[in-house]
Design a protein around this nucleic acid. Structure first.
Lengths: 130, 130
DNA sequence: ATATAAAGATTACACATGTAGTCCAAAGGC
DNA sequence: GCCTTTGGACTACATGTGTAATCTTTATAT
């Protein structure tokens, strides 16, 4: 099974494209990737191949082309990498993680509103559950 | 300058030891690392060497030994990796990141209390600044 | 039909990383 | 003083990753 730690930074770029829209042909992927990265077409195709081998992407044949699609969802990926960061670097402390962002001024007012809702949710569950 | 992305997972283990206590001799580092990891002494010494070359660690000579110390603080490291995760995987949305944890039940009541304080701080600053 | 272009498969190569082994010099034990 | 151990330096080697070029098989344009 494909785990997020098997996905390199460069590969993540392709995955992001496919999270936005899939399935896509390699030509489409190349075109979209090249909007932001100066990567050679051959490079991108190599990465597509490796991602298929790693079972991160699937493909279906359409004529003589392949149409690629992600086998791992963005949600699952996000969960995996953020959990690893949390455990590995912040000893499991969510607030420690957020505190860093607060210091850097990375907290936007939208974030704060969303955090308040999350906290309210959490407290409701807590009341119901405990 | 040493940036957090130059530090591999295995190397991070050594760095964590030195964040707890430094400077330490290689023998001490080996001993502490081996409390948790089954790594050969030679392996650990190779990594020490590489970390020095990468300017992640410094050393001072003490007789015929070296005493190693981190050149990057845990705070700076945490900031770098969490910012990279945030930008790269969550498009800069702190609340998106936290929402994932909330779903997984990774939020502890300590975290929630700490988050409330952070929010209160943030709102105070906001009032003063805007 | 033939030459060319396009898709994917295969091969290439340098640098990073995990995982040690070997070499050499200094320190200590006896 | 000689042998063994210990510290660090250097060497080794497989696998992963970034970055393509070449090969092979069609499809297509003329």
């Amino acid at each position: 099974m494909a785990t997020a730690s098997d996905i390199s930074n460069a590969e993540l770029v392709l995955l992001k494209v496919l999270w936005q829209e899939s399935p896509l042909s390699s030509a489409d992927i190349v075109e979209r990737v090249q909007r932001h990265e100066e990567w050679h077409e051959k490079t991108i195709k190599t990465m597509l191949n490796r991602l298929v081998k790693k079972a991160v992407l699937s493909y279906e044949q359409a004529g003589r082309k392949y149409l690629y699609a992600p086998l791992i969802s963005q949600q699952v990926y996000q969960k995996q990498v953020s959990t690893r960061l949390l455990d590995n670097v912040f000893s499991g402390s969510v607030s420690g993680l957020v505190a860093g962002f607060a210091q850097q001024g990375a907290l936007k007012s939208d974030d704060v509103e969303a955090l308040k809702s999350l906290i309210a949710e959490w407290e409701k569950d807590q009341g119901g559950q405990s």
